[in-house]
Write a protein that binds this DNA or RNA. Structure first.
Lengths: 345, 345
DNA sequence: TTGTAGGCGTTATCAT
DNA sequence: ATGATAACGCCTACAA
């Protein structure tokens, strides 16, 4: 093995000695700085490779006050499948860029939220931050970050400054398309379960539903639109109330899969058959959506891709590279399965 | 604000100056070292608080070569609900001890696995590692860690050295209890879907099933025992094959909830009613288990507690504290829901 | 019980 | 284009 004096890995000094240059030159090469002769660069790289040299993060951080790590802050959810797909994308982008990822689950809203984040920032001294919905809309938080000069990126915020790093998908279009699909099957009384009021997606999806109704000459009926919270239980209870109406809907569009699963469960409890008596649709295409009986018609967001994209953007910003001119808006796809069918009559 | 020369947080020097002592004394106080007069200690603490001082991790790490962070390595699964509960426990314990957590998802098995881990260790220089099943049984990996002197902890390994830090639950007892419950309902032909062969739980759960059969005078029938892989699809396919037998089982015990969900789906596809025609049980009590129709009878492991426990043990080991004498074996509970009932005949 | 000196492995500054 | 040297903030060893 290539052990040396300190018993651990090789240091910049070892590489410098081996390459016959000064440590500063090694540093330059490692950081891709300009003004190094190609020949010198090669010598250094060869030496580094031979010694299996890997820069010491702590030293780097101490001297340069960069940490080469970012964090993802999220509201710790009951259902993790959305976040899992976010993580897949973020890890991927981080790995490629040589960044580490720290996770920071939070209770939100919570009186101590801001303090916790502040302590976290101080402890870890990360270079940047990704805020998942609805944290990206917390103005105290974003103000704090701006104040401290910490770059951050937002996943699906309600609103944001023009220069913010943001990714979202076209929730309105996706829900409009879904609603149109349901209408095209022949449904006329279509229920809608809204998402959590704090999330940007909630209004957008509702709007897509409304637009589709309007375009097809169907009138909006407030009794068929209920407030949910993106969880199973709210899907279950709101669906129950709608199906107990004198004139129940023949289809219910839920703003995500968890609520759709709850709606499906409620329908069963009330003796409704899905989709024969009532069609049900979700949003997200979680694993559960395809494993439920009947499997759910839903909308698939390219969540992993979106997460990868925004992570890439954030790291570029941290490095002061100019951001790719790409737009941060992604399109969704309808996934047609067996929870939808024409109405019985 | 309390900014000082470097524009960032206060340093140990600032605190020392303010408290009228040397930096070493501050260091002692911050690290809870002995031999500090109580009065001095108080002075220092007061100064630190006033300055909102937080030790700089990088400097600490560089000088002391501890990182105050641990990592959790896991095989990136399709279904994340088990891991989510692990994370909840690990984060909790880390937070309390002032440790950060890094996550390292892996492809496993994979030719490049060991190299990736090695690179990760070098990059992050974490103080310890938690290995989820089945990574804890990779002898190359554990050898590597021992060689580098990195403490590690194992969640549900097949086997381990006596001094290893380990947590597991009584899989055999839980499955035996579940099987006995099924027998007590009157079932005599009971199918079993095994888990992934690499996981320790797989053999233990099978063994629990066998023991229960034997104790109740039922003979083991190899046609009723199928190999699964802890995922939905394998539950679905194995269940299909069993229900297509001339003499199908009236109950099927799956080694986890994902496979039980697959079995439930397969039963429906073949026109079997659950639980009227066939009872189905799972293991883990994932969110899906209670949201499926019918909701699944299953086994609840105290996963979060277990994770918290082992994290605590690991951190104690890192600090060279003597480990709590607690045993690392936890008990599980049966959760009775509607996917089980007496057989029709 | 407390303090001083030296070093951890980088990056930054300023020469050359 | 390259190098010497001083930070960075803390800990360890040793002294007092």
């Amino acid at each position: 093995m290539n052990k040396n004096k300190n018993g651990r890995g090789a240091t910049i000094t070892d590489v410098a000695r081996r390459a016959g240059v000064s440590i500063k030159t090694v540093s330059r090469v490692m950081n891709n700085e300009p003004n190094v002769k190609d020949a010198t660069k090669e010598k250094v790289q060869k030496a580094a490779l031979a010694l299996n040299y890997e820069p010491n993060m702590s030293a780097r951080m101490l001297a340069g006050s960069k940490s080469f790590s970012i964090a993802l802050i999220y509201e710790n959810p009951h259902e993790f499948s959305y976040l899992k797909r976010v993580l897949d994308g973020v890890f991927d982008a981080c790995g490629r860029a040589g960044y580490s990822l720290l996770l920071k689950p939070c209770l939100y809203p919570h009186e101590n939220f801001l303090n916790e984040v502040q302590a976290f920032l101080k402890q870890t001294r990360i270079d940047g931050l990704i805020l998942t919905a609805p944290l990206g809309d917390d103005e105290e938080l974003t103000a704090l970050l701006e104040d401290q000069g910490i770059p951050f990126a937002l996943i699906a915020p309600k609103q944001h400054k023009a220069e913010a790093i943001v990714v979202k998908c076209d929730d309105e279009l996706a829900t409009r398309t879904m609603t149109e699909h349901i209408i095209s099957l022949g449904h006329r009384r279509i229920g809608f379960i809204k998402g959590h009021p704090d999330h940007a997606a909630t209004d957008l999806r509702l709007s897509g539903y409304k637009v589709a109704l309007k375009q097809h000459g169907l009138k909006y009926d407030a009794k068929l639109v209920r407030q949910g919270y993106f969880d199973f239980e709210s899907g279950q209870s709101t669906c129950k109330r709608m199906l107990n109406l004198k004139n129940p809907p023949t289809a219910i569009i839920a703003s995500n899969d968890d609520m759709a699963a709850g709606a499906n469960y409620a329908a069963r409890e009330l003796g409704f058959e899905v989709p024969a008596d009532v069609s049900i649709t979700g949003f997200d295409d979680t694993p559960t959506a395809s494993q439920l009986w009947p499997p759910l018609t839903t909308v698939k967001q390219p969540i992993t891709q979106m997460a990868e994209f925004i992570t890439h953007q954030l790291i570029a910003a941290i490095r002061n590279e100019e951001p790719a001119a790409d737009t941060g808006t992604f399109q969704c796809d309808l996934v047609l399965r067996s929870s939808t069918a024409p109405p019985r009559d």
